[in-house]
Design a protein around this nucleic acid. Sequence first.
DNA 1: ATCCCGAGGG
DNA 2: CCCTCTGGAT
Length: 217
Amino acid sequence: MNKTERAVAVTRALCAEYPDRRPLLTYSSPFELTIAVILSAQTTDAQVNRVTPELFARYPRPSDLAVAAPPDVEAIVHSTGFYRTKARNIIAAARAIVDRFGGGVPRAMEDLVTIPGMGRKSANVIRGVVYGEPSVVVDTHLTRVTNRLGFVSGKNPVAIEHALRAIVPSEMQTDFSMGVNLHGRACCTARNPACDRCVLRSLCPWPGAQPDGSSSE
DNA sequence: ATCCCGAGGG
DNA sequence: CCCTCTGGAT
């Protein structure tokens, strides 16, 4: 099996293993999703979902959030962590959407990345979820899991994204990313990975996954 | 007590 | 490249 065949098999196995995975969050507009993605850094979806109803009730449109008072926004997003940074970022993001992108969320990576609080990872989520484009979302989980699977080596996010775009068929890239992310949390953890009950075991060259099971990174 | 589903800045 | 920003999860 070459890498592409293995990636296809991995994607299928992970889709079966995590059938209830969802493209994250159910927000009605690109604006809301953009703000939710910015808030998602270093927190759980549950925390984000807890604060967004109030946030969007009070600031329904980008032009509303753009002129919000930072302390008010801080109070709402408090439980998501990094709350001062995030409050400042989402207000500035709303302003950028209004001032520079005509009130809409841009599609191009180089534009998305200029929005405050939007790094490459979040931008790829937007491109996948809002615009339905093949999306390789590189985060710490995907980096670790794809290294172990032998699809990539190293931690450079841009290099990983490009390598995976060449390996994973484009129509599978979004499922691949979501599945790998979930698997990195649930099974292929940084410490004490559960190779003994891993559905990818037969597809994985990493030592811990082998029958003789030598461990460590 | 320790780790962490990122991003920005020095 | 390394540090910081925070609260929640484990």
